Simulated scan of single mutants.
Amino acid sequence: MDVQPQLDYRQVFTLAPAGLCISQWRVIAQANARLESIFRYPPGQLNDTDFDALYPTGRDVARGAEGAATALNARGIYACERIMKRLDGELFWCRLIGRSLTPAEPLASCIWTFEDLSAPHPVSPALSDREREIALLIAEGKTSKMVARHLNLSPRTVEMYRSRLMAKFSSNTSSGLAGRLMRPGEH
């Protein structure tokens, strides 16, 4: 008879190759070593950290919290690619996927995975906060009107920013700009 060894799930969580954490009301209750490495936190320092510390600006915090709450309430799962902030202030693209562990209160307890996308998608430091905010929405495939509505701006203002981004990323079309935003190293 072949006896299988008992899995130590705490060790699996701690040593997983993906950044993982358990959150309670958007506060990290437990982070694994890979997540600490991605965000450049010393061992144990991400625990009890509010998710707000991982976002570049207050606007990013609000958008992330609103998007997560909406998706978790509707489907119990949330996924996105967004710019996040390491402990040293460096910005980077990150894939974030979360699942609620408490369907009746979706944000009460969640498990999250984080994937550092900075190698294939470096963040251009030459972008202002507003340009970065608009670039994120364009990279999601939103039109200027949708971006304007989302950010409470006029479509003309968004078009001005889109033109500026197209010049910075050497793109002649909006679809080309969206592609360059997701692959900025290729321009």
Rank of each mutant, 00 (worst) to 15 (best):
K85C: 03
L117F: 13
T173M: 00
G176C: 09
T102Q: 15
M84N: 05
E140F: 08
M1W: 11
L151Q: 04
F51N: 05
W112Y: 13
Y161K: 08
A62Q: 14
A62C: 01
S175H: 08
L15D: 13
N172M: 06
S109F: 01
M182N: 12
C110Q: 14
L35T: 01
D48R: 15
V12A: 15
A148F: 01
G64W: 00
G98D: 03
E115K: 05
A71W: 03
T157C: 10
Q4V: 08
F39M: 04
I22T: 00
R26Q: 09
R34I: 13
Q6M: 13
R99N: 03
A139V: 04
A65V: 08
I138A: 02
D129F: 00
E140N: 12
C110V: 02
R63Y: 07
M1C: 11
A18D: 01
V27A: 06
G76E: 12
S109V: 01
C110D: 05
E66N: 12
L35A: 07
E133V: 10
V123Y: 02
A148I: 04
G179P: 01
S171E: 00
I138F: 08
V3A: 15
R59K: 08
L72I: 10
A108P: 08
P43H: 06
G185D: 08
G44N: 07
I77E: 13
A18R: 12
L165E: 03
G76D: 06
A148S: 10
L137F: 06
N32W: 00
F169T: 06
N152K: 12
L96E: 04
S175A: 07
M1F: 11
E90D: 14
P56N: 10
T157D: 08
K168N: 00
G89F: 12
F13L: 09
R34A: 07
A16G: 11
T102I: 00
L153D: 01
D116A: 12
L46F: 01
S170D: 12
L46H: 00
I97D: 10
T157G: 01
F92T: 11
I111W: 01
A148N: 07
L177H: 11
T14N: 14
F39K: 06
N47V: 02
A126L: 15
R26I: 04
L35S: 02
G89R: 12
R63V: 09
Y41K: 02
Y55R: 07
M146T: 06
K168V: 04
S100E: 05
L136M: 14
T14K: 11
E131S: 03
A33G: 00
F114G: 02
P155L: 01
S23I: 03
T70A: 14
V12P: 06
D129T: 13
M146Y: 09
S128M: 02
C21W: 04
I134C: 07
G176D: 06
R149C: 08
G176L: 10
D48M: 08
V123E: 10
K142Q: 14
P120E: 13
I97E: 09
T14M: 14
M84T: 06
A178N: 00
D129Y: 06
M182E: 03
H187M: 13
S109R: 15
A31G: 07
I134G: 04
P43G: 03
F39I: 05
P120M: 09
S154V: 05
A71E: 13
A62Y: 03
Y161M: 04
P17Q: 10
R82K: 15
L91Q: 11
L127M: 15
I28Y: 00
P125V: 05
S23Y: 02
R59I: 08
A79C: 11
